[in-house]
């Protein structure tokens, strides 16, 4: 029998020529993260990466909320692959962890059920006249950053270190379930102790906190937050994690999943409003970063270009700890250089 032991698993990560698929929700939740990733891969690492304007949803949220049938999902994903094939790429890089899980699910389905693949080819052909190739690699962007963590370190201006004390900052790393649990063989390290974010944090000077509920889901859960009556389940899971990490006094949380970043950030505010409780000593809340934001900050990118002003928990205390300079006045400047007028919202 096959023995499932993921711990020593290191997957193949292509080292160039990426076809990037932006995420639906990340573009509204953390709009700076994807641009930052493109900057890191394209400008800092000098790799070829395609940011295709014609891409669309993978149906992930609709699929997991039971409103999109699997046949539709397969066909829509096939169209994404066809766009990739058209541009001559083989390495598909979905920004979103749910896309990553779903693309792997679809490709795995096709391996076991070739008739589903044929049906998808037929559907896509009938609907759009298109054909597609299955990508050689489906790689999550965090895998790419992990792969080049040493090269990036050389270009970094800051470390995950408290500039006043010289002590490493204490970091909670949280991995999206659809990155590590759907296909554990597609994970760097193991499903129980994935190395992808821990590897970055430790390489860049931080200290990873191994708290008891480290492996617990953030509670995002699609239907659980989409339907108001179910949101209590979602927030209860996040709270379980916060309670468990609180005694370790984390300086920040870093995640690789849109849902996790969103809810670990926003639910802290919600819990504060509902119960008056925050999980840090100062009452600010624990800042939550995407791995792109973390990387960008250390590389010396302007925090407001990264989109940190769109987080619920303000990141300024963290910037101060690391010693990253920022201009308070610029925080809410729009692209036009003018202050964004919130009165209209």
């Amino acid at each position: 029998m096959e023995r499932k032991f993921w711990k020593n698993y290191q997957k193949d990560i292509p080292d160039n020529n990426y076809y990037y698929e932006r995420s639906c929700i990340r573009q509204s939740f953390f709009p700076g993260s994807e641009t930052t990733f493109l900057r890191i891969v394209g400008d800092v690492l000098g790799k070829q990466i395609e940011d295709d304007q014609n891409l669309h949803t993978c149906t992930g949220i609709g699929y997991h909320a039971d409103v999109v049938p699997f046949e539709t999902t397969q066909t829509i994903i096939a169209r994404l692959f066809s766009l990739m094939s058209e541009k001559g790429y083989r390495n598909f890089v979905p920004s979103c962890v749910t896309s990553f899980g779903l693309l792997n699910e679809v490709v795995e389905t096709w391996k076991h059920f070739p008739e589903e693949l044929q049906q998808t080819r037929d559907f896509l052909k009938q609907a759009t006249g298109r054909e597609f190739e299955i990508p050689e690699y489906i790689t999550h962007p965090c895998d790419i950053i992990y792969k080049f963590r040493k090269e990036l370190k050389e270009k970094m201006r800051f470390q995950i270190v408290n500039q006043k004390t010289g002590e490493p900052l204490r970091v909670v790393e949280h991995i999206g379930c659809h990155y590590s649990k759907v296909f554990p063989q597609a994970v760097i390290g193991s499903a129980e102790f994935p190395q992808v974010l821990a590897g970055m944090v430790e390489e860049w000077g931080g200290q990873v906190i191994d708290y008891p509920e480290r492996r617990h889901c953030c509670g995002f859960g699609f239907r659980h937050y989409l339907i108001m009556a179910n949101r209590g389940y979602s927030i209860a899971n996040s709270r379980k994690k916060f309670e468990s990490m609180e005694p370790y006094h984390p300086d920040f949380i870093v995640t690789n999943c849109p849902g996790c970043t969103m809810f670990l950030d926003r639910w802290q505010y919600t819990i504060k409003e509902m119960e008056g409780k925050t999980y840090d000593k100062q009452g600010n809340g624990i800042p939550v970063l995407t791995y792109e934001e973390m990387t960008g900050l250390l590389l010396g990118f302007n925090p407001w270009d990264l989109g940190l002003q769109l987080h619920q928990i303000s990141a300024e205390p963290l910037l101060d700890k690391i010693g990253i300079p920022y201009d308070k006045e610029q925080k809410y400047l729009g692209k036009s250089g003018k202050i964004i007028d919130f009165k209209g919202f």
């Binding site: 023995r3 032991f5 993921w6 499903a191 102790f193 191994d210």
Partner: peptide, 11 residues
């Protein structure tokens, strides 16, 4: 026992 990772043996 390392193979049963969820128990953190060796960690």
């Amino acid at each position: 026992a390392h193979y049963k990772e969820e128990y953190g043996y060796g960690i």
